[in-house]
């Protein structure tokens, strides 16, 4: 088994190696004419204003949290899926996992009803007023 994973390791190394070799080859032939404009971040011709490394909208954080919960669930599903045929497809194994899934689905329903799966939580009208979207819209 350890040799199988040696294959993976060698593939990763060859990936790094081939990228480096190609970049080196490119470095030998490409021109290098540095001007002041080239060194500025590309923002469609405007000079960049302010810092880019800023705090970010926390809805990405909510998505990441929901993802972690569901991904752990998928991790629990994999061993069960492998063992399912070996357990003789019996009803007990099936019911067991369905109870586990049902408990998780309660959480999923909660997230859904609370509106955390909505991307747009509020919008602006033409008059500039902010309107909160209700979760059931």
């Amino acid at each position: 088994m350890i040799l199988d994973f040696l294959n993976v390791f060698i593939f990763l190394l060859v990936g790094i190696f081939m990228v480096s070799i190609t970049l080196l080859l490119s470095k030998l032939v490409h021109p290098r004419k540095i001007t002041k404009e080239k060194m500025i971040a590309y923002e469609c011709g405007e000079d960049p204003v302010g810092e880019t490394w800023i705090r970010f909208n926390n809805r990405f954080y909510v998505i990441a949290l929901i993802f972690i919960i569901f991904d752990i669930e998928v991790v629990f599903l994999f061993p069960w899926a492998v063992a399912f045929t070996k357990l003789g497809n019996n009803f007990l194994a099936f019911a067991d996992m369905m109870i586990f899934l049902a408990i998780l689905l309660v959480g999923f329903a909660y997230v859904w009803v609370k509106g955390d799966l909505e991307w747009v939580k509020s919008y602006f009208t033409d008059h500039g007023e902010e309107v909160l979207k209700s979760p059931n819209d």
Binding site: G15, I16, V19, T22, S26, H30, K38, M39, A41, Y42
Partner: peptide, 27 residues
């Protein structure tokens, strides 16, 4: 693409910038 200038703009995090395409391609 091979003979195109490879611009690394100022003000960037150079180490991560160079490493990113390697990781993406490697996987």
């Amino acid at each position: 693409l091979l003979i195109k200038e490879d611009i690394i703009a100022g003000g960037i995090d150079r180490r991560l910038f160079v490493l990113a395409p390697v990781i993406v391609f490697m996987t």
